[in-house]
Design a protein around this nucleic acid. Structure first.
Lengths: 411, 411
DNA sequence: GCACATTTGAAAGAGAGGAACACAAAACCC
DNA sequence: GGGTTTTGTGTTCCTCTCTTTCAAATGTGC
């Protein structure tokens, strides 16, 4: 019988897992909720909610607090609130010009956050891993308890294989084929599972969980920096592709007569809309970084024709590429992050014009283009969310082994 | 409490539905299976499979037949086989130059199929609906039983809103904003649910269910004809976008200096790779249709430089666009359908070259480009699959009301 | 203070799959 | 050709999880 198991049959246990997961997910994303709100959200009965919440309370992941009366008739419902300290993750970010680390508690509370500048250009894996470990140690030292992290999430400017956190390529750092998860596990002295993903993918995750795209199922997060990254949410799930390399929108060919791209191709989108293109056209040093971009924006505000022309040109190409993406994905929302978020006020009209001209009417009408709402920390917060995913997907695992967690008041 | 139900809590009934669905799905897609193969596939126990199969047998959807010994030791297992006549759908197709109708039974057996040529160019909705109804009546008349169809699926060259089968735009027919489902329901005199979708989307569905992409989770089906359509499968599910307009790859802008496209934009992919572009460059009448394309292919085989150049040019632009799509989607498979399937032998090398040059190494390595395996009927077969979807998703509904179905031998 | 609305708590009930055992049928081995 | 091995079936009882039901608790509004 040459047949492998593909479909997994469901059992009662599956139901329990799904329901526990739904409750944790709602609490984690929406914040404190009353039992009856949970009843409304999940469609389960009060009894079921009651018993499931009871288990979370016993495990210390959640506590209930007496709610202030809301002015509505009926017995007031106690608020169910996540215990941020009961499950904490470490989030790390390797960006073009900074490194960051944060500790985030269940429910999304940022307990601590450190970001340090990093010189642009190539760095050895060892150096960056060491720097990150130092940041992590700094945060760890400030932490009162000694509970281990339940997971580590890492955002990196680079192409990452999702299954195992293998960094296939990170041109901004000069990396190729780096098993980053292993290196970090060693440097951080941790057994916690380490998940690595592309920074734009994680920015998108953060935006749909905590930013301007909450609840949206079809979202394109386009992150501009030196290069262009894309975090694409399709039907509520991140587009990973067959090996996790999906979403590399920066290297869509858009201009057959364009410039050589560092990826080896010619006329990629990022050669037309990346930071370098903007600075060059505005008459600034193309390697200038964020400060130089800020200068261009100041000049544009002051009315400098060169700066305005450069922004207009980038806006044109941004719209050109976005039109194709809108036709392909029919998204509800396009979120512009990083550089694109900063220049949004200057390019919004140009982009809208290109979309009007080049996108099909039906998808065009439905899409809105907005700047990212989480700022520079979006990928870092997304890394935290990534680290929480196993807990959100199957909370039952966390309910059994841990019986004694820091106990907090429960009324 | 301003909260709407979003997550749906699971109950035992959900489990039952999921397991019934898994069984029907496997039988529908893989064909007859023994009980023990179903056990292996689903991970359920024999008792569970036994009782679920028993219900299907009672309902007449499935029957068991004594298996011939297979030469392996052990007691031979009875084969569980779908009863094709127990649930039949009607599939319809409105293509650029043909109309088709088919009757397909549960399990995918094509019971009857008719295809008639259609003059290219604009046609009124009424005329086409009438023609389709006639085809359907013809098939219906040949049918021995009078059981109603469980559903109707329609494939159409056009942009379709998935939720209700509203045809937003069909440039090949000259249609805008047509409520095709309503028109067909009236013309066919049927109460059966009617689902309408884009032909390329349905071609993709057929390819992952019955064609060359069985089991693949990330597939791009690119269908060339007068225009270019895309059926994109992401993570095993069709990419629909927020309103079902997703997958319109034909109108990705690829050439800023290109020709005006009938969509109103300039330099869309389909202006470079569509049938018109091929014929024009090969020195044929651009409106010539399939016969003219066949002529070009014969000339190319005979070594005509003009034909070869035209094919090479189309191959170049095909690869150019595909490179971007491969970078975005990181697919396992790109399937070329329609015109692109026919010219595949002539353009495969050119496409591969463009991909090598323009796609990122990581996704490039993982993708294969193949011609469609189902030929012209792919969208029609996909329409049938679309009509089966409700049954596959929740077979329980079909188990209760129908107690008397045509009974077939069960040993 | 009383009617009403809403939530809580606990016990009994129902639906679904799992585990274990006895039995059946075919191929293999000597 | 008979016993052994292997694979599959039928049946019964058990467990898990959510639902149902009823009584009690705790508010609001008049």
């Amino acid at each position: 019988m040459a047949i492998r198991q593909i479909v997994i049959g469901q059992r009662s246990e599956t139901v329990r897992r799904a329901n526990l997961s739904a409750i944790v997910r709602e609490l984690h994303i929406r914040g404190p909720l009353s039992r009856s709100e949970l009843v409304a959200l999940t469609g389960l009965t009060r009894s079921a909610i009651r018993s499931l919440i009871g288990e979370f309370v016993d495990a210390g992941l959640v506590y209930e607090e007496r709610a202030a009366p809301l002015g509505t008739p009926g017995r007031p419902s106690a608020l169910v609130r996540m215990n941020a300290d009961s499950a904490v993750v470490l989030a790390l970010e390797i960006s073009v010009d900074s490194l960051a680390a944060a500790e985030v508690g269940l429910g999304g509370e940022v307990l601590d956050l450190v970001r340090v500048d990093r010189p642009r250009g190539h760095s050895s894996v060892g150096a960056i891993v060491t720097d990150l470990a130092e940041l992590a140690a700094e945060i760890r030292a400030r932490r009162p308890t000694s509970e281990p992290y339940i997971g580590v999430g890492v955002a990196i400017v680079g192409v990452v294989r999702r299954s195992d956190g293998f960094v296939s390529m990170a041109p901004n750092l000069g990396w190729r084929d780096v098993p980053l998860d292993e290196r970090l596990a060693f440097a951080l002295h941790t057994d916690a599972p380490i998940s690595v993903a592309n920074d734009a993918d994680l920015g998108a995750l953060a935006e749909i969980r905590r930013g301007s795209a909450i609840g949206a199922e079809d979202v394109l997060f386009i992150h501009g920096e030196v290069g262009v990254g894309g975090g694409l949410i399709v039907g509520g799930r991140p587009l990973t592709g067959v090996a996790g390399y999906g979403g590399e929108v920066g290297h869509i060919p858009v201009n057959p007569n364009g410039l050589a791209c560092r990826c080896g191709s010619v006329g990629c989108w990022e050669t037309e809309v990346g930071e370098g293109a903007l600075l060059l056209r505005a008459g600034h040093a193309p390697g200038g970084g964020r400060l130089e971009v800020a200068a261009v924006l100041r000049e544009a505000e002051a009315g400098s024709p060169a700066a305005l022309d450069a922004l207009d040109n980038v806006g044109h190409w941004l719209g050109f590429g976005l039109a194709g993406l809108v036709n392909i994905f029919n998204p509800r929302l396009v979120i512009l992050g990083g550089l694109f978020g900063r220049i949004h006020p200057f390019v919004a009209r140009t982009i809208a014009g290109e979309l009007d001209r080049r996108a099909l009417p039906a998808p065009r009408e439905l899409v809105r283009v907005v700047p990212a709402s989480l700022g520079v920390d979006a990928p870092l917060l997304g890394a935290a969310e990534l680290a929480f995913d196993p807990l959100l997907a199957d909370p039952a695992i966390w309910l059994r082994p841990r019986t004694s967690l820091p106990e907090l008041a429960s009324a």
